[in-house]
């Protein structure tokens, strides 16, 4: 119900036509003179999305940003989760706390803090210049790199927590057995630890990938204007063009794209349980 209700509303708007009124779209059901309502649905908004390459490019660009940042978050998140899980028991609570602690401040404030760090006259450039590593400030702010930094930072805990939950429960005797049988630590990691932690990896990746696909705030604040993401396109449709039907169609297609990986994930979860 929680999932379906908003979905039905958005679907309904996406089939309407825009007009200048309150609300700014035509009604789907019209109660005319006859007893039965007449339905006026239009697929125009969907057809429009395919008539202009902008939308497809925006979906692909969001997909690229989501995939790259999920991989980056996985690499960093895995090493942190692994270290925490391997740390002495009395330290684990403290370390885990440090991962969660930033959540106590507003998400927006944390993104703004990155502006202070990354901007031309920001902390990072001042620090690097004062120790003489660079003599000209690095341009990071307002580029895709800043977007990746922002996304990886903001979504890291979503990756670490499921991974930690998984790695912490791992049976250490399996690793000992591998070592006893002469397996090198690195090979053990690849052939034992990683396969055992796949449910954690999958959960973490989905928790990062899905929200990043529709991310709007981070590219808006940290990204340059060249950063094209579907969240921003949706915003322009809704606010600049006041075209709620097209904006809704953008959202419906985004949802359709995300439903596929979610289904795959559910299937793999069911498999893991059985």
């Amino acid at each position: 119900m929680f999932f379906m209700l908003p979905f039905i509303f958005v679907l309904k708007i996406s089939l309407a036509e825009p007009i200048m009124a309150i609300p700014p779209y035509t009604a789907l059901l019209e109660w005319g003179d006859s007893l039965l309502p007449s339905i006026r649905a239009s697929l125009e908004s969907y057809l429009f999305l395919f008539s202009d390459s902008l939308y497809i490019k925006a979906y692909l660009s969001s997909l690229k940003i989501a995939i790259i940042s999920t991989i980056l978050t996985l690499i960093i998140g895995y090493s942190i989760a692994y270290s925490v899980a391997k740390a002495p028991t009395r330290w684990r609570g403290v370390l885990l706390m440090l991962v969660i602690l930033p959540f106590w401040t507003s998400f927006l404030i944390r993104v703004y803090a990155w502006i202070g760090i990354l901007k031309t006259e920001g902390l990072l450039n001042l620090a690097l210049m004062s120790i003489g590593i660079i003599d000209k400030p690095l341009i990071i702010m307002n580029t895709d790199l800043a977007v990746y930094i922002g996304i990886v930072y903001s979504y890291l805990p979503f990756m670490i927590l499921p991974l930690y939950a998984n790695l912490e429960k791992m049976d250490m005797s399996l690793l000992e057995a591998a070592a006893d049988l002469g397996c090198r630590p690195f090979k053990t990691f690849w052939t034992v630890t990683i396969p055992l932690s796949i449910p954690g990896i999958l959960a973490g990746c989905f928790l990062v990938f899905i929200p990043v696909m529709g991310e709007f705030v981070i590219p808006d604040l940290l990204g340059g204007t060249k950063t094209l993401m579907i969240g921003k396109v949706l915003w322009t449709e809704f606010f600049y063009n006041r075209d709620w039907p097209v904006a809704s169609a953008v959202a419906i297609i985004l949802l359709a794209l995300l439903v596929v990986p979610i289904m795959l994930y559910q299937k793999s979860q069911e498999k893991a349980i059985s």
Binding site: D52, S53, L54, K57, T225, K226, T236, Y240, N241
Partner: peptide, 15 residues
Amino acid sequence: QRVITRTWTKVTTGQ
């Protein structure tokens, strides 16, 4: 308005 917005997107993102 749509022409203006589309022009703007083309200019700002290069798309």
